[in-house]
Simulated scan of single mutants.
Amino acid sequence: MAATPDERDERIALLLDYENLAIGAREGLGVSPFDLGPVADALAVRGRVVARRAYADWSSFDEDRRLLARAQVELIDIPQRLGGSRKNAADIKMAVDAIEIAYERSWVTTFAIGTGDSDFTPLVHKLRELDKRVIGIGVASSTSRLLPPACDEFLYYDRLVDTTPPAPAPEPAAAPAVGKEEPSEPEDEEAVERLVTRTLSGLARRGDGPVLASRLKRAMLRQDPTFDEAEHGFRGFGELLRHLQERRIVALGEGSAHGDPEVSFPVDEPAEDDAFRLLAEVVGELARRDGTVPLSGLKDQVRKRRADFSEKTYGFASFLSFAKAARARGVVRMDWDERAGDWRLRPA
């Protein structure tokens, strides 16, 4: 019997060595508190997260605790005891729970282990020995070199999170006059486009076969369970995709089953070309004045020209990924400045 769509999805247990991640993100990226959202989105593309646990002495992470509770994460408290090692206690508890889940919950196919600590390398080896797939998650600056090669896949948090400061919020618009209908907000449609392109990009990067519409929608619902195309004026998901195809945001092809088309990005995307052209223009103007342009702060400069710019509209997870794509297309040149610790761009 063929597997149902849900049976084909990976079932993921997410276990976080939270103190390691939080300190690594704060010291290495200047991100505090730790934002679980990009991790959840990356895993949602890969399958269903059926367990979420984070291990720490939560008395040291009050704000983080509230955010994680809202994200439906089970908080495992490892209080600090006199004469004992809190770190070792948390590591041991997390390892014991992982092995217990592997033996007692056979339906869990994948473990996502959030840590940069090489002490977890034996755990990763054991889970793979038990025929479990292991996805590692860590901050680049605080991740041991021994850990990523031990995993089936490793996600650097640096590449998932956008650390570029947001552009200043625009001035609030005047309230509509009484008795007049409030106009619809274009941001609503843009949010749908970003969700579709971000999810499609993640599925396409996995390279494990064509992305069918049914698979795309399941992945979108894992990222946003409240998503409903009817709320955006479409009678079905297929109608939404056809609308996006008309706008040259996605391309549809014949799928393996009737009514379930294959979804991809258009081969020639005018909107994406315009975005790269905009980047080239901004880099060219700034380079005439300063020689080369640092990546940090560049997104704000682009947004001064186009306030609604977002690299996620074009399927890129971060502005750095967008800039690297521009370099690959010969739009700009880009080199790493070791002394400044930043990328520097110049016209191609």
Results as ranks from 00 to 15, higher is better:
Ala280Tyr: 06
Pro38Lys: 10
Arg65Asn: 03
Asp41Tyr: 01
Phe322Asn: 02
Ser201Asn: 04
Glu285Gly: 07
Glu187Gln: 14
Pro5Lys: 04
Tyr103Asn: 09
Gly209Ala: 10
Val50Leu: 14
Gly83Ala: 12
Phe276Met: 11
Ser32Gly: 00
Pro148Tyr: 05
Gly259Pro: 10
Asp274Phe: 03
Leu123Gly: 04
Ser201Lys: 10
Gln245Met: 10
Ser256Phe: 09
Ala230Asn: 01
Glu171Arg: 14
Asp17Ile: 02
Arg159His: 13
Lys87Gly: 13
Leu43Val: 01
Gly284Thr: 04
Ala204Cys: 02
Pro261Thr: 01
Gly28Phe: 03
Ala112Glu: 05
Gly84Cys: 08
Asp300Glu: 12
Gly236Tyr: 00
Glu104Lys: 15
Arg344Cys: 03
Ala44Tyr: 10
Ser60His: 13
Pro5Phe: 06
Arg65His: 09
Pro148Arg: 07
Lys217Cys: 02
Asp188Ser: 13
Leu216Trp: 11
Ser85Thr: 08
Thr110Ala: 07
Val302Ala: 00
Arg235Leu: 07
Met220Lys: 11
Leu241Lys: 06
Ile78Asp: 01
Asp268Ala: 13
Val263Lys: 12
Tyr314Ile: 06
Arg8Val: 03
Glu239Asp: 13
Ser144Cys: 01
Ala69Phe: 03
Ala323His: 07
Ala257Val: 10
Glu262Ile: 10
Arg327Phe: 04
Leu252Gln: 01
Val211Arg: 12
Ala213Gln: 07
Glu182Asp: 11
Ile92Pro: 00
Leu146Gly: 01
Gly116Trp: 09
Ser144Asp: 02
Ile76Glu: 15
Ser321Ile: 00
Ile99Cys: 11
Ser214Pro: 06
Gln80Phe: 11
Val139Arg: 05
Val267Tyr: 03
Ala13Ser: 09
Thr199Ser: 14
Ala325Tyr: 02
Glu239Arg: 14
Pro270Phe: 03
Leu298Arg: 10
Leu67Thr: 12
Val332Ile: 15
Leu286Val: 06
Pro176Lys: 12
Leu203Gln: 13
Ala13His: 09
Gly255Val: 00
Leu252Phe: 07
Val267His: 04
Leu279Val: 06
Glu129Phe: 10
Ser118Gly: 06
Gly136Ser: 05
Gly138Lys: 14
Ala2Trp: 03
Phe316Thr: 01
Asp337Ile: 05
Met94His: 04
Gly297His: 11
Ile101Tyr: 08
Leu241Asp: 07
Asp208Trp: 09
Leu82Asn: 14
Leu295Ala: 14
Gly315Asp: 09
Thr163Ser: 11
Ser201Cys: 12
Arg133Phe: 03
Ala2Pro: 14
Gly138Phe: 12
Ala150Ser: 13
Glu311Ser: 09
Tyr156Phe: 15
Pro261Phe: 06
Glu193Asn: 13
Thr292Met: 09
Pro33Ser: 04
Phe309Cys: 05
Tyr156Arg: 12
Pro165Val: 09
Gly209Leu: 03
Phe316Arg: 06
Phe234Met: 05
Met334Ala: 13
Gln301Met: 12
Gly37Arg: 15
Asn88Ile: 00
Val283Asn: 02
Glu285Arg: 15
Gly136Lys: 12
Lys180Arg: 13
Leu240Pro: 02
Glu153Ile: 08
Leu29Glu: 04
Leu29Met: 08
Arg247Pro: 02
Thr226Lys: 09
Thr163Tyr: 04
Gly253Leu: 03
Phe276Ile: 02
Val263Pro: 07
Asp91Gln: 07
Gly84Pro: 00
Glu229Asn: 06
Lys126Met: 08
Asp208Val: 13
Arg70Thr: 13
Ala112Arg: 07
Ala112Phe: 06
Ala44Thr: 10
Arg145Ile: 08
Gly330Gln: 03
Leu279Asp: 06
Ala325Arg: 07
Glu254Arg: 14
